[in-house]
Design a protein around this nucleic acid. Structure first.
Lengths: 192, 192, 192, 192
DNA sequence: AATGAATGAGAGTTCATTCAT
DNA sequence: AATGAATGAACTCTCATTCAT
């Protein structure tokens, strides 16, 4: 019965973290972040309440981790690279991914959106994600500049809004919202 | 030495109700319905906690009143009439109003949007609004049918999504989002 | 429109008091003294909450009045006279009345009994009724002394207990408890 | 550095439960179930209010536990066995125990009696006890049938009333009520 | 005499967090 | 690393009582 090696410990910690975040995602999604209790998350993760605090300093931090994870996944999935230049093909791909990704894990994204309107949370997330998304915004800005629009910045912001609206409807009414058509419409409008 | 007259009481009650709803709007909008506490609402309304319950039976009822008020105002402001037929001019007006109205009372609409993703609340809201909005959806549906689109229903849903996205960005970043341009873009795309 | 005369005022006050006590009796009996609210009593009495406090200084005082009223009625109905001497006939009558009276107004007596086990209330009532009941106890004591019992005081106390037990069961299970038989048994045992 | 063992936890929980029930007994008995506050019970048990809810889901459940405990003790102490047949000796013993047992733990029984008249609670108690007491009633019924009384059922009910009356007086005025004499009287009357 | 709007203390309950083990 | 007993502050809601009118 030798003690665990440091490597094993790290591994265990990593597993536990995933366990907890996974449990938290489900519980938060089902009951809403504020109504969900830490006890329930712990129970769902099959660990004790106390142990949760060994991995996350607070309920809020669990939420934060969940959101960061979400965005990291999205950035990864969209293969976003700082400094990248978009051509039409790549831009089309980005539109498609932007609409497809939330639909893969609707729970996660619904949870995320449910938070987006609460001041303190919004700020918190912005602080967390700003650095990671700066490059993306620039790439997009450059693309719209190159498109020869009258007011490329306005167009870019409008584009973001449209995309958000579409994502929102995909999440809220996945059965009735025509996601594929919406993709086409967006592509046609903004790429031409 | 007579007691307050009935008229006086009605007046007082009316005033207080407005006071409470106003306070609740701000507190709910800032902190989210679930995290906001009745105490804070009362404090903001400068009344005792107890008195709130003289006017509303529960926290939820305050929310309901707020939402009903919101929609009644919107329907009134947009001059929506059940069974109305939209022509291009009127449709343009509706687009413009849809984007302008939320900006007049951003708090209210932020609150409203924040609720859309809270599962338990969504149902409550739907029940409250369905009857009030049925006619509007039909008018719009008829308009899109008349436009000769390939798939008018899909287009209508896409239109709704776009509008929601624009409204959302207007609310979340009113200083930077180009609302006027966005109006033009929407009009150009959907009316032609 | 002349002002009310003093006599009229007294009359009104008396009526109101009866109104209130009557309402209180019903509400207290239905919901229990502690759970019943002053508002409900006022509503049932068709007056305002405020006015109740013009007649009784507190909820507790209403209760006290109710109990005093109850005992006064009982004493009156049993025609108890201080210093009276009981013969067998009269004692028989007292037994019968003791069992009949609670059954006439079961609500009142149930309410009364529900209070009898709470320390503060017990003391309160004792203080209130002691003076009114002293003579009665003496008469009874004299009766039992005259009966030639071994230990007349013990017998008297036992008698009181038996009577209370019978009253209690009459109130709690009026449909099944054989009140008339019980009367006979008590009479046979204590009078002979 | 291991966590508490399961056995330790069980022990702690057992102790605490006793602590809480003991505190509740006193507070409920003194102030009545409805007026007693959970805070006071917690204070008397020297624990936090919150912890009470780790052991009982509600104030009512504490009451229920108390009552069950009480009856289990009484049934045990009276050695009641379903289906038992009473002879005179055993019946005498039952009378004696019925009067002695409440005096051992007057608080508990005062509480119990105070509940008998609180409508909402009565039902709760009946549900809890009916199954436990069915056999006892039958045994008693059989005994009275065998005694050759005119109306054995009436006599049994009368007997119950007498016993309750005696118990009541023992509890309310233990110093002056002649419990031993009362036992004799009851025995003489009902056994002969 | 009469009203009911208003208060404030306290009710039962929940829960994020801590800590002894 | 791990537990869950324990806390305390905050929660929603109620209600006896007061007071301006």
């Amino acid at each position: 019965m030798s003690p665990r090696t440091a490597a094993q410990n790290v591994e265990i910690r990593e597993e536990r973290k995933v366990q907890i975040l996974d449990a938290a995602l489900h519980v938060f999604a089902e009951e809403g972040y504020h109504s969900a209790s830490v006890s329930k998350v712990a129970k769902r993760a099959s660990i004790s309440k106390g142990l949760m605090y060994n991995y996350f300093h607070s309920k809020e931090e669990v939420l934060r981790a969940l959101v960061v994870e979400l965005w990291e996944y999205a950035i990864e999935a969209m293969k976003i690279v700082p400094g990248e230049e978009f051509d039409d093909e790549r831009f089309k791909e980005i539109i498609e991914l932007s609409i497809d990704i939330p639909q893969e894990q609707p729970q996660r994204w619904k949870l995320y959106m449910s938070l987006a309107f609460q001041k303190d949370v919004t700020e918190l997330l912005m602080a967390e994600m700003q650095p990671r998304l700066g490059g993306y915004v620039q790439s997009m800005s450059a693309y719209f500049n190159g498109k020869g629009y009258d007011d490329p910045m306005a167009m870019m912001r409008y584009f973001s809004a449209v995309l958000d609206g579409v994502q929102m409807h995909c999440l809220l009414d996945p059965e009735n919202f025509p996601a594929e058509k919406a993709k086409e419409y967006v592509i046609k409008q903004f790429i031409g």
